[in-house]
């Protein structure tokens, strides 16, 4: 089975490469593009460590073939900071509120939270927990993750207000 030519936009840049169609998107990102932020935690789409943003939706890149993502627009944790290098409010908030420990779930967690706050800019704690339920963390017990997302939401709302 031959390799196919794959083209997509990743973190705002056009990328292309040759890959077997069966290559999982997570492997394409990590091994061919060197974007090692998203991780593999479970292989069965339960843990969410591989979460990336695909065409404006949160997806688990361990359960998606690169062929399926051909032509898509992908954002990973590496693409969340602003062009000037300033961190996304979620990245700041996770640090500020101790929303991570070993860091392995963190890229998927933040990337999912990024989309969650696009879908619902003012979530309640319950909505945050439900919205983050596709991402497992073994270290934090989630409490500080919820806190960080709540804080980032407030920060982003304040930023938006200030800009208006």
């Amino acid at each position: 089975m031959s390799k196919m030519h794959v083209k997509m936009t990743v973190n705002g840049s056009q990328v292309e490469g040759l890959a077997e169609p069966r290559t999982l998107l997570i492997h394409f990102l990590r091994e061919q593009l060197g974007l090692t932020g998203p991780h593999i935690g479970c292989d069965t789409s339960h843990c969410g460590a591989c979460t990336v943003d695909l065409d404006g939706k949160s997806v688990k890149s361990c359960t998606l073939f690169v062929a399926q993502a051909n032509g898509a627009e992908v954002t990973t944790i590496e693409g969340l900071a602003a062009a000037d290098g300033s961190l996304h409010p979620l990245q700041e908030a996770f640090r500020e509120h101790h929303g991570l420990q070993c860091g392995f779930c963190t890229p998927g967690m933040i990337t999912r939270a990024y989309r969650l706050l696009q879908e619902n800019p003012t979530p309640s704690d319950e909505e945050i927990r439900f919205g983050m339920s596709g991402n497992l963390c073994r270290c934090t017990g989630y409490q500080n993750i919820v806190k960080a997302i709540r804080a980032a939401a407030a920060e982003m709302a304040a930023g938006k207000e200030a800009a208006e």
Partner: peptide
């Protein structure tokens, strides 16, 4: 946290 929140951790894989 700076490296982990930016996807710049360095795990074995």
């Amino acid at each position: 946290d700076a490296r982990f929140t930016q996807g710049k951790g360095n795990y074995v894989d």
